[in-house]
């Protein structure tokens, strides 16, 4: 038996601590140890991207990291996109408005990937560029079109509202 290691991470603005086996993936750690099941496992071999979270503001696949590797880092999951008062983030609102989700399983990963993209491109490029940005997350329901529309709509709202979206994001 390999001994467990202490891990301290800041998740959605909160410091969380746990002891984990080295082989425990970041995804399982978030879902089961920290009770944040919004990070979904679609393939566990780094293709579907459905487990995407932000690590220090950068998108990563939580099935391809071990929890021990996140020690000392900051993580944003879909649960952290929601404002402290419970309001949906403008991206979440736009996904709702434009029917950018059907089964909802890839939605957390899509939201976080879009979030990262809009942080770097507050004024989004062409549809092709938005599609490339979300190309690492597989969606089986929507055919992606409404996701592209929603991201563009959210960008318009966010740039109109000013640079700081109301969220507990660590990446702002």
């Amino acid at each position: 038996m390999v001994e467990k290691r202490p891990v301290t991470v800041t998740v959605n603005g909160q410091v969380r601590q746990a002891e984990v086996e080295p082989r425990r993936t970041l995804a399982d750690f978030l879902r089961e140890d920290l009770n944040l099941p919004g990070t979904h496992l679609g393939c566990e071999h780094g293709v579907c991207g459905n487990c995407t979270v932000l690590l220090d503001g950068q998108s990563v696949r939580a099935c391809l990291m071990f929890a021990v590797q996140a020690d000392g880092h900051e993580i944003l999951t879909v649960e952290g996109l929601v404002a402290p008062n419970g309001d949906l983030h403008p991206l979440q609102e736009a996904f709702w408005e434009h029917h950018a989700l059907q089964c909802g399983f890839c939605t957390p990963a899509m939201l976080l990937t879009a979030y990262e993209y809009l942080q770097q491109h507050p004024v989004p490029g062409s549809d092709e560029e938005i599609r490339e940005a979300i190309g690492g997350v597989l969606c089986r329901c929507t055919g992606y079109q409404n996701i592209v529309t929603a991201i563009r709509a959210a960008a318009t709202k966010l740039t109109a509202a000013g640079p700081a979206p109301a969220s507990r994001s660590v990446a702002d």
Binding site: P37, G38, T77, L88, H99
Partner: peptide, 21 residues
């Protein structure tokens, strides 16, 4: 009409089978 199902999924509170313990 906007879907009434969506808010729980947008919040990451979908309660899929693997989320249930």
């Amino acid at each position: 009409m906007k879907r009434v199902e969506d808010p729980r999924f947008l919040r990451g509170k979908g309660r899929y089978i693997d989320d249930i313990r």
